[in-house]
């Protein structure tokens, strides 16, 4: 989906701000989000990482920018818990009010009323799925990426769409997130590392000597 999360190449964000002596967690609640994810898994509300990533992409876009990393995860896990029927938005809101929430605060979660049915978790753990089909591309091939996005989850960022690059590595078969996130099966595909020159991505304004490498699935690519 063309969501707010697809940041690559966006301008205007300003300096990268570092924190001195940054702690692993800034508060106990950040670690708590991991525990909530574990509970969502146990309750059957979370079946795979691709589904979770898509749940985070679907949160309120303003919250995505302002709630921080664990705030985004929290919105994603709330989406999944509500969509699976484990919790209701109203009961979460009521409990939050009891605990001191301000009713004017933006809630990150935006659960779908008719969510995907994701009841599939692969028998083999991880995402590597060696394929018997031959890869379409070889190292050194010139390829062009698909020009358009999709409504659902994808790992083809907007900034490399419709661009020409070269295959630098082939990684055999991997679970396709575009399909797995929605419970439509693993549909593994060959995965490649593709390099794009700075000028192909950013034109004459590109910094000198820039080469962006990115891992892309076979169905994202076509021969030039």
């Amino acid at each position: 989906m063309d969501g707010i999360h697809d940041f690559g190449g966006k301008q205007g964000f300003g300096r990268v701000l570092r924190e001195d002596d940054e702690p692993v967690f800034h508060g106990r609640w950040e670690a708590k989000v991991f525990a909530l994810l574990g509970a969502a898994r146990s309750a059957g509300a979370l079946m795979n990482t691709d589904q979770f990533r898509h749940a985070v992409e679907r949160i309120d876009p303003v919250a995505y920018l302002s709630h921080g990393y664990y705030g985004r995860w929290l919105g994603g896990v709330e989406n999944l818990l509500v969509e699976a029927g484990v919790l209701k938005t109203e009961e979460i809101a009521a409990r939050a009010l009891e605990l001191g929430a301000n009713p004017a605060w933006t809630v990150a979660a935006r659960p779908f009323a008719e969510p995907d049915v994701v009841d599939y978790e692969g028998e083999i753990s991880g995402s590597i799925r060696p394929l018997v089909t031959k890869p379409v591309f070889r190292t050194g091939d010139r390829v062009r990426t698909r020009s358009f996005g999709t409504a659902g989850h994808t790992r083809l960022p907007a900034y490399v769409r419709g661009r020409e690059g070269s295959i630098t590595a082939w990684h055999d078969g991997w679970v396709l997130p575009d399909s797995n996130a929605h419970g439509r099966g693993e549909n593994p595909e060959h995965l490649y590392t593709v390099v794009f020159s700075g000028t192909e991505l950013w034109g004459v304004e590109s910094e000198p000597g820039l080469a962006v490498h990115i891992d892309l699935f076979e169905s994202y690519l076509q021969k030039t």
């Binding site: 800034h26 909530l36 709630h67 929430a101």
Partner: peptide, 22 residues
């Protein structure tokens, strides 16, 4: 900063609400 408009308490309260219901 990601926390300009939203103190961490907003997220921590929501997390606590979800945790306590679970």
């Amino acid at each position: 900063s990601e926390h300009d408009d939203h103190p961490a308490s907003q997220q921590s309260i929501r997390a606590e609400a979800i945790e306590s219901l679970l």
